[in-house]
């Protein structure tokens, strides 16, 4: 894994440049480039099958980079999967402490830390002695989150970790995650296909489009996540859903109402060939609404493609 290297002087950021990846002859990722500095939460958003998980696994070093560069300047990286993936034969406490054990910490110390973080994430003391099958799905997710956070990571990679949870649990885990993130200036790169989740949590949204997977644009949200209320999240999620580039990426037909759609022909399913309103229009429109589309130089190629 090209992850930890405490002595180097690289900036504390995750940097991905010109990343291409293929499974056999299937081109999965093409020309991916972005930068994730410490303290920023970035969401990778896109339809199913656009290579989000592949990109995250490349960033984590779980896959070998074929072409391009992934450079991770963070000291410690932790990964949380879509399913809890707990070891069924170990108690919740031992599961949380797994990464610490791998790092060679003594038993008493790793249990002390695991207990601390487990309790903070809302696990009861007796839950910690239970085996995973005795815990509900929500409790298992807490254990999985605790297992990642106990490593005190500088970079946390999340692969749709909350997608199977109910709304209340999601909200609670969001809050726990954001508290932890803010306290430690942790960088977070998360996959989601829930736009609301992305708007709720992230400082930047990287929109991906499929075949081959590429980043088509980047939205920046300039209100700190802690200050966003539900109304703000709903409004900006709706905003995002009306954006032509977003609709295109998800294969939705362009909006037929309002000035935006005036010039657009009814294109039906052929989303890729549908003319979309260009970045400048989207940008000026969004800046008033604090959703800023920034044509990052690294993204120029893909942006110009989606801008027509």
């Amino acid at each position: 894994m090209s992850v930890s290297c405490p002595t180097d002087t690289r900036p504390r950021e995750l940097r991905v440049d010109g990343l291409n990846h293929a499974f056999g002859r299937d081109e999965v990722l093409a020309g991916i480039g972005f930068r994730l500095p410490a303290g920023e939460v970035a969401a990778l958003v896109g339809p199913s099958g656009c290579g989000k998980t592949t990109l995250l696994h490349l960033a984590a070093g779980l896959l070998t980079v074929q072409e391009g560069q992934v450079s991770n300047g963070f000291d410690t990286t932790a990964f949380m999967f879509q399913q809890p993936r707990l070891l069924p034969w170990q108690t919740a406490l031992d599961n949380i402490a797994l990464g610490l054990k791998a790092a060679g910490l003594a038993r008493a110390e790793r249990h002390r830390r695991a207990r601390g973080i487990g309790l903070r994430l809302g696990l009861a003391p007796r839950d910690l002695d239970k085996f995973p099958h005795q815990l509900s799905g929500g409790m298992q997710s807490r254990v999985a989150l605790a297992r990642a956070l106990v490593l005190a990571p500088d970079l946390l990679l999340l692969d749709e970790p909350f997608s199977a949870l109910d709304v209340g649990l999601k909200e609670e885990l969001y809050r726990l995650l954001l508290d932890h993130q803010a306290a430690r200036a942790m960088g977070v790169l998360m996959i989601t296909h829930d736009l609301m989740e992305a708007v709720r949590l992230s400082d930047a949204i990287l929109l991906m489009a499929p075949a081959p997977g590429r980043i088509v644009c980047r939205f920046e949200l300039d209100v700190p996540a802690a200050q966003r209320d539900d109304a703000w999240v709903y409004r900006h999620t709706a905003e995002l859903l009306q954006n032509a580039v977003v609709r295109d990426a998800f294969g939705m037909p362009p909006l037929m109402t309002g000035a935006v759609a005036a010039g657009a022909p009814a294109a039906g399913e052929q989303a890729a060939e549908t003319p979309v309103t260009g970045m400048p229009a989207g940008g000026s429109h969004a800046s008033a609404l604090r959703l800023v589309a920034t044509p990052d130089p690294a993204l120029a190629r893909s942006v110009s493609r989606c801008g027509g």
Binding site: M1, L62, A78, F81, R85, G99, A102
Partner: peptide, 11 residues
């Protein structure tokens, strides 16, 4: 899946 998890946590 468990093997992937174990790799991610660098066991």
């Amino acid at each position: 899946q468990l093997r992937g998890m174990a790799e991610a946590f660098r066991l």
